[in-house]
């Protein structure tokens, strides 16, 4: 089976490790991710304003691209893309007047009618494949690897687009359990990392990141697992500086869930592009004997 897939900008650059591992892992699970033709940036952050239909053009145009392929479903890997596409879709489908305005404005395109479903890859794993099937296909169980799933904001908030329970999500927990990992629950799993404030207030983001990392480490996590490339950049890049301010801190690897999925399915570790991770996870994975060729 094939599934239309919207990569978004970051997955083509900084988060190549997320994309490559996702495509390979999904193929191993029997789903071919087919990149959406002529996709454009989704706008990254959803506009909350009630009077800014202009900001909804970018995400809606991507949904039109899905229609053009004859599809009615599109998957994302980046949490921000998921949030923006999903919310824009919800806005126009629940508001025919706004949908009409947007369609009129983009007269060169075919009309959008709210007939595309936006899903996140984690939902595909849960709903299309199922944890049991995934567990059966595991070749390299992540035994002994203590991982803390970190959900961040955009997969869960607002409530209307949440892929799981807003306050107590388990979807990533369930996936990692199916892969045989030791899942560590920690109180900061749904706490914001500071997000785009990295461009104007990097110090505040560092403080947030320290709170998140130290909370996971207090609950004995070896690594943090996530889906959002912005969280990944914040949680990863900030660590160098944090090692200077907190002398006892030796760093903690941050991994995409897709990377662990690919590893556990027994794929070549090369495909995971582990060298691109901000904190090298290879020593940890080697120590757990998870980097088999």
């Amino acid at each position: 089976m094939s599934l239309s897939y919207y990569p978004g900008c970051t997955l083509k650059t900084k988060a190549k490790n997320a994309e490559d591992s996702a495509i390979a892992a999904m193929a191993a699970l029997g789903i071919e991710l087919v990149e959406l033709p002529r996709w454009n940036c989704c706008g990254t952050v959803y506009s909350f304003a009630g009077d800014e239909e202009l900001h909804q053009l970018a995400p809606v145009r991507n949904l039109i691209r899905v229609k053009e392929t004859g599809g009615d479903r599109v998957a994302t890997i980046c949490s921000f893309c998921y949030n923006t596409l999903k919310r824009a879709n919800l806005l126009v489908t629940s508001n025919p007047e706004k949908m009409h305005t947007i369609n009129t404005f983009m007269e060169e395109e075919i009309d959008y009618e709210g007939d595309v479903e936006v899903v996140h890859l984690l939902e595909v794993l849960r709903d299309d494949i199922g944890w049991e099937t995934i567990a059966e296909k595991v070749q390299v169980p992540l035994t002994g690897l203590k991982v803390a799933p970190y959900y961040g904001c955009t997969l869960l908030r607002p409530q209307e687009i949440a892929i799981d329970d807003v306050e107590r999500p388990t979807i990533m927990h369930d996936l990692l359990k199916a892969l045989g990992a030791d899942v560590v629950d920690f109180p900061y799993a749904t706490e914001c990392c500071g997000s785009y404030q990295i461009i104007s207030n990097p110090d505040y983001v560092s403080q947030r990141v320290w709170d998140i990392l130290s909370s996971a480490m207090r609950r004995k996590a070896d690594a943090i697992v996530l889906s959002c490339p912005l969280c990944d950049a914040n949680l990863g890049q900030t660590q160098k500086e944090l090692m200077q301010t907190h002398s006892e801190f030796k760093g903690i690897p941050i991994l995409y869930f897709t990377q662990l999925l690919a590893l556990a399915l027994g794929l070549d570790p090369e495909i995971c592009r582990l060298e691109l991770n901000y904190v090298d996870p290879r020593p940890l994975l080697e120590s757990k004997e998870l980097l088999r060729q």
Partner: peptide, 22 residues
């Protein structure tokens, strides 16, 4: 005023998101 290194370092999602909000 944003340093070139910062721009090189940050993912698009951070920059576009930040510019849109700020």
């Amino acid at each position: 005023e944003i340093p070139k290194e910062t721009i090189a370092q940050l993912p698009q999602v951070a920059m576009v998101g930040g510019f849109r909000k700020l």
